[in-house]
Write a protein that binds this DNA or RNA. Sequence first.
DNA 1: TTGACAGGTAAGCATCTACTTACCTATTCT
DNA 2: AGAATAGGTAAGTAGATGCTTACCTGTCAA
Lengths: 115, 115
Amino acid sequence: MKRSPLTASRDVFAAVGDPTRRRLLDLLSRGELPVRRIAAPFAMTRPAISQHLGILLRARLVEVRRDGRERYYRLHASPLRRIHDWVRHYERFWKGKLTALGDFLDAEEKKERRR
Amino acid sequence: MKRSPLTASRDVFAAVGDPTRRRLLDLLSRGELPVRRIAAPFAMTRPAISQHLGILLRARLVEVRRDGRERYYRLHASPLRRIHDWVRHYERFWKGKLTALGDFLDAEEKKERRR
DNA sequence: TTGACAGGTAAGCATCTACTTACCTATTCT
DNA sequence: AGAATAGGTAAGTAGATGCTTACCTGTCAA
């Protein structure tokens, strides 16, 4: 699978694949914040946070609002819907409702393969 | 955020962050398959697929069963629950139910900050 | 207007990642 | 037994990632 240099910037899955960025979203789910405030609880420099925010921005997971010299970032959760929908497909598997059917299908497929 | 060399191996989010691995899970959701069958539809060599399966295995997203010289991989969806739970937390945001409250909280926080 | 603050951005670096090819072991088929 | 098949694993590589420091612009306050 080709991965252009900006994959994580666009792909919600990749964007959320990083634990720091997940923490950022969690933090922003409490309400909008200026960068300085966002960066404070993290053990990394502000530019690093800025870069993570840039990735979240390009994945449309956050929005910015300028106010004087500050930039307030706020959560924009809707792209997470894509992940939600994808995972939801698998819900039936871990809920066990499909175990029997799954096994049945597996067996059927094995028969198929033998032909 | 420190990332040991095997991060993706353990972290479900990272494991699922890769599009190829997502496709693998989708494929396996139809039933178990031997590696050769799994690799067929992918435009990449079998060892590459083997490595991806290794990562999914360490993330406990798949299980293997040996049968002669073949190894049947099958989906083990339950770790996806973690992602589901995490995303579900944000559901209320994109459903818009919290927009008004969100704005209210933002406003409150701004007042707070001004003090 | 000069300095301090907010924050984006470039350059550089160490490491990780997603592949490849080459090779090895276990099993089955003749 | 010997060849073919299934598939794991090592080593190498190009490029992506996650940081850092250095620097720049825009805004506010004295």
